[in-house]
């Protein structure tokens, strides 16, 4: 409820900022056509002006220096998400996903996505040879219910994990404040990058 009310306006504002940079246009009409939620357009423009992010003159809209900075963040965010999803789907789809996710995702996640994209190839399955704290880069389990169980316990790409000690047939790991015992079958499916 709450989240939905705020979302439309936030989406419209961010779309406007991105459209100005990406399409290199200042025509209000062209930007309106690009919008995902055109009904929020006028209110979004008004708010952007109040926040000092854009200036309006006649039928055109321009970014202020603060606006340029904000738009830069959104464009970077969009590209990071697009880049991440391009591993799995084609470019057009990745763009569509990024277009949706850019509005709900926070900076830390974008940062993690970028890092994960960079680091994914560097992760290695947990084997008990490396100790300390590492970043989970990939969880690869064929059984979907087991995957869901692992995610719901916090074993999710982008999370920090600490290997504690070996036990017979597996090892003890720590995720945040959760201590888990896993056997090698599970451990070998968790890819981790140790700094």
């Amino acid at each position: 409820m709450g989240i939905n009310r705020h979302r439309a306006l936030k989406v419209a504002k961010e779309d406007i900022l991105r459209a100005i940079v990406e399409f290199q246009t200042d025509s209000i009409e062209e930007i309106r056509q690009e919008l995902e939620t055109p009904e929020s357009f006028t209110r979004a423009i008004d708010q952007l002006v109040t926040e000092g992010l854009v200036r309006i003159s006649e039928r055109s809209v321009r970014l202020t220096p603060a606006g340029e900075e904000a738009a830069g963040v959104i464009v970077t965010r969009h590209r990071a998400i697009e880049d991440y999803f391009r591993q799995e789907v084609d470019c057009e789809e990745a763009h569509r996903i990024a277009h949706k996710l850019e509005h709900v995702i926070i900076e830390e996640v974008v940062y993690s996505l970028k890092r994960i994209r960079e680091l994914e190839s560097k992760g290695r399955p947990l084997s008990g040879d490396e100790w300390g704290e590492g970043l989970i880069t990939r969880v690869d389990i064929a059984d979907s219910r087991l995957f869901d169980r692992m995610i719901s316990m916090g074993i999710c790409p982008g999370q920090w994990i600490r290997t504690i000690k070996r036990i017979h047939g597996g090892l003890i790991i720590l995720l945040g404040n959760t201590q888990l015992a896993v056997d090698w079958e599970i451990a070998s499916q968790i890819e981790v990058m140790f700094p």
């Binding site: 087991l146 047939g169 003890i172 201590q179 888990l180 015992a181 079958e185 599970i186």
Partner: peptide, 9 residues
């Protein structure tokens, strides 16, 4: 099933 066991503090 593989072992995935939470150890409470």
């Amino acid at each position: 099933d593989p072992i995935l066991l939470e150890l409470p503090t």
